[in-house]
Structures are given as structure tokens and as C-alpha cells.
Amino acid sequence: MNQFFIINSRKIPKIFLLILCVVAAFIWYNFQMKVVPVSNENQTNREIQMITGEFVTETADGKKIEVYRFDPGTIYLKKGEEVDLKILGVNGDEHTFLIENTDIKGRIEKGKETIVPLQFDKPGTYRLICITHKDKENNGPMIAYIIVD
């Protein structure tokens, strides 16, 4: 009879080590991040989603305080990158806006999505300012920061 198939006390540690290696290799393989190649052939611009939001509270003396915000309040772009900023109007009927130090102006309406194409040739911080809510007296400031590097 072939002695390979006979299990004795000297072979048990070797068999255990072999089984342990097989199980470890199986676990390692199955928990590796699967890398899938992605092609951007059909999409030319990166999309960034933003919403208009509102915070409302009441002071101890019963005065209502509200403020409007962009969310996220800060976005990051690379110099020269083409981006579609998609702003969904959630709170507030209308927000007229501009992007400081550019010619970009527009309007966001409640329940609608406004698409703002962006591309900056100079690094810096650009402020997206809601003119309707520009300061504390007008339930603001409603400002988002566009950081370009």
C-alpha cells in the first residue's frame, strides 16, 4: 500500500499547515479589492451635486431665525478641469447667484436643477454667492467656496 495516504502523527502538522495555507490564500483572494477598468469616453465633465438648504430655529424670546446654505459648502477642482455643478433647489423659492471674479451668473429655483458649467484657468478660491441671501439681514450669508488648485 502506498505510504502517502497513511496518516501518522508526523504528517499531521504538515497537513494542518497545508490546510491553513489554502484557507489563508482563499480568504486573501476573496477580500482583495477588485479593480475594474473605467472608461470616461462617454462622460467629458465631472459632475458635482449641490443643494440649497435652510436652517430654522427659534430664540428663547420666540424670535424665528432662519438661514439659507449651499451644501456642500466647499468644492474642490483642478485648474483647467471641466466640471458640471448641478445645484438642486430644495429650500427657498429662488436663489439668484454669481461666482465672484467671473462672468458666471444664474438662478436656482425650488424643485429644479440648475447646471453650471465650470472651468477655471487660475488657482484660487472663488465664492459662489446667493445675491438673494447675501447677508444676515437677508437670511444669509449663503456662500459656497470653490477651491481651484
Rank of each mutant, 00 (worst) to 15 (best):
N101E: 14
N40V: 09
I6R: 08
K64W: 02
E81D: 12
F26Q: 07
N8I: 00
Q119D: 07
I146W: 01
F31Y: 15
I99W: 09
M142W: 00
L128D: 01
K64I: 03
A25E: 08
I6Y: 06
I15H: 06
Q43G: 11
E137F: 10
T96W: 08
R69C: 01
L85W: 09
F5R: 09
P117D: 09
I99D: 06
V148M: 05
V148F: 07
K112R: 10
D135V: 01
F31H: 15
L98I: 12
H95M: 10
K78I: 10
V148K: 00
I27S: 12
L20G: 02
L118H: 07
A144W: 02
V56Y: 04
M50L: 13
I146E: 03
N91I: 00
N30S: 14
D84F: 08
T52S: 07
T96H: 13
M142E: 11
E58C: 02
I129Y: 01
M33E: 14
A25D: 07
Q43N: 15
T102E: 12
I12V: 14
K78T: 11
I6G: 01
E54G: 02
I7M: 03
Q32R: 15
T125K: 15
T125M: 14
G140K: 03
M50H: 04
E137A: 13
K78R: 15
G53D: 01
F97I: 06
L88T: 04
V38C: 11
R69G: 03
F97M: 06
M142V: 06
N138W: 05
L98E: 04
G106S: 01
I143D: 06
L98F: 13
G80I: 09
P37L: 13
K122C: 08
E109A: 09
L118K: 02
V35D: 07
K79W: 09
W28D: 12
I51Y: 03
E41D: 13
K79N: 11
K78P: 06
V38H: 13
E100I: 05
